[in-house]
Design a protein around this nucleic acid. Structure first.
Length: 264
DNA sequence: ATGCCTAACACCGTTAGA
């Protein structure tokens, strides 16, 4: 079962790109972030025409996450627990049905758009850190279920200096600061596996390249999109790769998809 | 030292992204 995550940087601006990617990559489940549209503007029919069930939590102009699944899914949560006052559309969780006639167990997935947090002196950084604390608390609850679970998305976290082209330049950025990294490691200490790092520990493989300054052409990027696996999912991990093809196209997102294959 | 680029929204610039 192939599960992919992709920060599309506006679904309306990227719809042709995203549909091409789905046709080429054929994920069973796709987690999308930064759809930047209201639910009423969500291109459900286009996804259904490719054979996907689709669900989203939308917001005008900013944020927004979605889940696409080839099989039936049930939405479990449309917001991250822990702060009823948080109105930003950054979390969607679903249970994905096993396909008929297969022995796959059901899979729980979440599409995550973790706050960027810059500038660090602003209220945005404490919001990011509190969001990460809430994520840890919820992730700990999910572990008690002992299910295969994939918490995937744009974490806006550079986990180590091996995940950025110029560590010194990024050391004080909200994506790389020690507090940010500590909260990300806390997820790993709980028992979640960073799928890509597990299979590609060599580092310097990126999922984001800034539009500016020729970052893509020079392969000066960041690894900030992650697939975090519960132990029951990590047991089934067969492969995990970054798909650079969509970043090469006309009018690309500044992120590119990352996927994992689980034999459930 | 700064902007580089892209998108949304509203307006012909500002905000946000990372």
């Amino acid at each position: 079962m192939k599960i992919a995550t992709f920060n599309v940087n506006s679904l309306r601006a990227r719809i042709a790109n995203v549909l091409d990617w789905l046709k080429d990559a054929q994920p069973d489940v796709a987690l999308l972030q930064e759809i930047k549209c209201l639910e009423g503007e969500f291109p459900r029919l286009e996804f259904e025409s490719l054979g996907y069930n689709a669900a989203c939590v939308g917001q005008k102009s900013y944020n927004g996450v979605a889940i696409l699944s080839r099989t039936r899914m049930e939405i479990e949560l449309k917001a991250l627990p822990g702060d009823h006052g948080d109105e930003q559309a950054r979390y969607l969780e679903a249970i994905i049905d096993a396909p008929d006639g297969e022995k796959w167990k059901a899979l729980r997935v979440a599409s995550i758009y973790l706050p960027n947090g810059n500038p660090v002196e602003s209220e945005k950084y404490p919001y990011k850190l509190s969001w990460m604390k809430r994520l840890k608390a919820h992730a700990a609850e999910l572990l008690k279920l002992e299910e295969p679970t994939v918490l995937g998305g744009d974490y806006n976290v550079i986990p180590t200096d091996n995940d950025v082209y110029d560590p010194a330049a990024w050391a004080e950025d909200a994506l790389a600061r020690p507090e940010t990294r500590a909260h990300f490691r806390a997820l790993q200490w709980l028992g979640y596996t960073d799928a890509f790092h597990h299979l590609h520990p060599e580092g310097h493989r990126y999922t984001f390249w800034d539009y500016q300054a020729g970052r893509w052409q020079r392969d000066e990027g960041l690894r900030i999109d992650h697939l975090m696996l519960s132990p029951q999912a990590a047991d089934c991990l067969e492969a995990c790769e970054i798909d650079r093809a969509p970043r090469k196209k006309e009018k690309p997102s500044d992120h590119t998809p990352i996927w994992c294959e689980l034999r459930l």
